[in-house]
């Protein structure tokens, strides 16, 4: 399926958000996620299936003012 990962087209066959994060090497990383504009808690990623055209955000801490 094709999704939008952090604003860019991305092809994946990961079935859940948790699986996508793991495949990207984020299993132990300090990240947070949103799907289609809504926050998805870490504990909910396993129960969050991915669908074609989903918009996924994976964010991490960064410098800010």
């Amino acid at each position: 399926m094709k999704i939008l990962l952090n604003g860019e087209a991305f092809a994946t066959d990961a079935e859940t958000l948790d699986e996508l994060c793991a495949r990207l090497g984020f299993a132990q990383a300090k990240i947070a996620t949103a799907v289609n504009g809504s926050f998805v808690a870490a504990a909910q990623r396993l129960a969050t299936p991915l669908a074609d055209a989903d918009e996924i955000e994976i964010v991490a801490p960064r410098q800010g003012g």
Partner: peptide, 12 residues
């Protein structure tokens, strides 16, 4: 802040 994390750079 929060910003998009790249699986390669892993800046955050």
């Amino acid at each position: 802040a929060l910003r998009r994390e790249s699986s390669r750079a892993r800046t955050g």
